[in-house]
Amino acid sequence: MLYRRGKSLVDQSARLERAAQSLASGQELELRLAVESLFPMEPLLQCLRRFADESPETRVELFESVVSGTDELLLGGQVDLAICADGVPPGHTGEVLLRYRALAAAAPSHPLHRLGRPLSVEDLRAHRHLVIRDSGQRRERPSVWQVTQQRLTVSHRSTSVRAACLGLGFAWYAEDWIREELADGRLRPLPLIGGAERWGAFYLVYPDPDGAGLGARRLGALLKEATAAAPG
C-alpha cells in the first residue's frame, strides 16, 4: 500500500516537473483545435497521436464543427488553430492543407437511379436532399450544397450516410466518407450531367499567426506532414 502510494506521488511529481518545463519553454499546456467535419479522420488521428507522443503533458481539445461553426470558433478566439473548408473567415489567412472531391451519391434503389439516364439539377429538386446541420449559431456562411427544398437535416455525418444507404435521400459526400459504401455497392454515384463531382480545399488557419505558441505551430506542422502523405 505504501509502495503504491509512494509510486503515485513520484509519478505525479514527474508530471508536474514536465509541465513546468513545458511552461518554461513556451509550450502550451492546452491546445484547442477546430476541424471541419468534412476533413478525413485518418490523417487527423495520425497527427494527434504523433503530437501526444511528443508532448504528453499538453491536453488537446478537438472541436468537430460544420461550416460557419468553424468560423465562429476562430473569430471568437475559442481555438488556437483550425481547419476550415472551402475558405477562411474574413480578416484571416490560411494555408491549403488538402484538396478533396465530393461525389453526389444515393442508394442503388433510390428513384433517381431508377430513371436510367443522365440527370440534371432539375431532376434532383423532386427528391430529398440529406444535409448536415451547420454548427454555427448565426449560420452566416451560405451553403453551396443545398439544391432542393426537400431536406432531411441531421447533426452527424454517420447519420447522413446511413440515411442515404437506406434510400432516404441523396447528398454530396466527401469521397473519404463513403469509400466502403461505394466499394460494397450500398451507395452509387449519381450520373449528373454537371456537378456530379465538386472539389474543395481544407485550410490551416491560426487566429493570430504571429502570436501562435510553440505547441500550436508544432501541431500545425504535423497536420501538414500528415496531409502531405495522405492519398489525394
Rank of each mutant, 00 (worst) to 15 (best):
R162Q: 01
R117E: 02
S109T: 10
Q137F: 05
S160A: 04
L75D: 11
V67L: 15
E57H: 08
V88L: 11
R117M: 03
H110A: 08
G77Q: 09
R162W: 00
T58P: 01
T153W: 08
A85N: 08
V60S: 04
E54Y: 05
R101G: 03
Q146D: 07
E54R: 10
D71F: 10
S155E: 11
V121A: 03
I83N: 03
T93D: 15
T153S: 07
A105Y: 01
V131H: 02
H110Q: 12
E95Y: 05
L112M: 12
A52F: 11
D134V: 06
V96K: 15
G91P: 13
G69H: 09
L115M: 05
G76K: 06
D134L: 13
T93F: 05
G91L: 08
E64L: 08
A107F: 08
A85I: 09
P56E: 06
I83W: 03
T70A: 13
S120W: 03
R128W: 07
L112P: 07
R59H: 09
F51T: 02
D80Q: 15
S158G: 01
I132P: 00
H129S: 08
R117N: 03
L73R: 05
A104K: 01
V154R: 02
T58E: 03
G69E: 05
R128T: 12
R49W: 15
D134R: 08
R101Y: 04
R162L: 00
P108D: 13
S160D: 00
V154M: 11
R157P: 00
S160E: 00
F51P: 01
R141I: 12
L130G: 01
A126W: 09
V96M: 13
S158A: 01
R49P: 09
T153R: 12
T70K: 12
S65P: 11
D53S: 13
R59A: 09
L81V: 14
D134F: 14
D53P: 03
E122N: 06
E122R: 14
S135Q: 12
V131G: 02
S120I: 02
H129M: 12
L115A: 11
L81S: 04
V131D: 02
V121R: 10
S160H: 00
P56G: 08
R117H: 10
P111L: 08
L119R: 01
S155I: 08
L103A: 01
S65D: 07
H92K: 14
D80V: 05
D86Q: 09
R101T: 10
R138W: 14
R128Y: 06
L73C: 15
A106K: 04
V121G: 03
H127Q: 15
R50G: 04
L103R: 00
S135M: 10
A106L: 12
I83R: 03
L97F: 09
S160P: 01
R141D: 10
L97V: 05
S68G: 14
E140H: 11
H127F: 09
H113I: 13
